[in-house]
């Protein structure tokens, strides 16, 4: 039991939580504007690949960070164009974009690194990934950025003109239109914000491994989506749910390291089971934005 109370466990939990929190915050902006965002998974993956590609080409983790955000935005632009502009089905397009991100990153991985599994090592913010201590975490710019964005998100969503207008588009687009708010513009902005956030989540995934591996988002976008719903579409609620899911994953890793009698397959599925059960348990108490998924 003591293994779960140690500082090492807490640090690991926080490291695991970062991409979830970023993706879930991104999803919150998209969905509070009224656009269902299944594409978080593809944004994470494209963000991770964008990071590795840009860091590889430039030798700089900072350029990599920009590349990662750009990667997330490519997927976001696809989602906004299809759903906000063309009014396509957000769920089908979202799943399609996830598969497209998976396929394109696979294709480019083969083309750039001639590998079907992973890229070469690229620079990251820490000198090597053996640095897992508290100092390494709190001096990591992506971690600091995550904490900052988490603190700013509720303010942006609840206290600024932009946030209130975005929410109006998600709750009652006709009313928003009638007072002169362009629903298209605000919804597009919400989706683009989600691309930036989730792209940054991908940066974290790739940077903490110093490389890209095939399909490395591994369902995290879907789990983040469940966290956002569990957290009732509020930034802090979503982040709290992310911590819960990250705990499940950290417990899994700790138990796997200790070698208990539990079959490893049961440990592997623990985060997915926790996500499923939590989603089912919380769903009744959760209210979606009224016009979520509806064209105006």
């Amino acid at each position: 039991m003591s293994a779960f109370l140690s500082g090492v466990f807490l640090l690991q939990l926080l490291r695991i939580a970062v991409p979830y929190v970023l993706a879930a915050l991104g999803g919150t902006f998209s969905e509070r504007g009224g656009v269902i965002n299944i594409a978080l998974e593809g944004m994470l993956l494209a963000g991770a690949f964008g990071y590795v590609l840009a860091a590889h080409a430039s030798g700089s983790a900072w350029v990599g960070l920009l590349g990662g955000v750009l990667g997330g935005e490519v997927v976001a632009i696809g989602l906004a164009a299809a759903v906000v502009r063309l009014r396509a089905d957000a769920i089908v397009v979202g799943v399609g974009l996830n598969l497209l991100a998976l396929a394109v990153t696979r294709f480019l991985l083969k083309l750039v690194w001639d590998s079907s599994s992973n890229s070469d090592r690229v620079p990251a913010f820490d000198a090597d990934n053996s640095a897992v201590g508290l100092v390494a975490l709190v001096t990591n710019p992506v971690f600091l950025l995550t904490v900052t964005l988490l603190a700013l998100s509720p303010v942006l969503l609840n206290r600024t003109r932009f946030g209130l207008r975005l929410r109006a588009c998600g709750e009652h687009p006709e009313a928003a239109t009638s007072v002169g708010i362009s629903v298209t513009t605000y919804r597009t902005a919400g989706v683009l914000l989600s691309g930036m956030f989730a792209g940054l989540g991908g940066v974290w995934l790739a940077a903490s491994q110093h490389q890209f591996t095939d399909g490395m988002s591994a369902g995290r976008g879907y789990i983040a989506l469940a966290a956002m719903i569990t957290g009732r579409w509020s930034p802090l609620g979503a982040a709290a749910a992310c911590l819960l899911f990250a705990t499940a994953e950290a417990v899994q890793m700790t138990l796997q390291g200790q070698g208990t009698g539990i079959p490893t397959q049961f440990l592997q599925m623990l985060p997915h089971v926790v996500t499923l059960v939590t989603l089912v348990g919380f769903i009744g108490r959760s209210r979606a934005p009224r016009a979520l998924g509806k064209a105006r």
């Binding site: 696809g78 063309l86 397009v93 974009l97 598969l99 497209l100 998976l102 396929a103 394109v104």
Partner: peptide, 18 residues
């Protein structure tokens, strides 16, 4: 892997145009 890209493109465009 080019084939996987084409499959996903068909899916996204069919959904958007559909």
């Amino acid at each position: 892997e080019i084939v996987d890209v084409l499959v996903a493109v068909v899916l996204v465009v069919a959904a958007a145009a559909g």
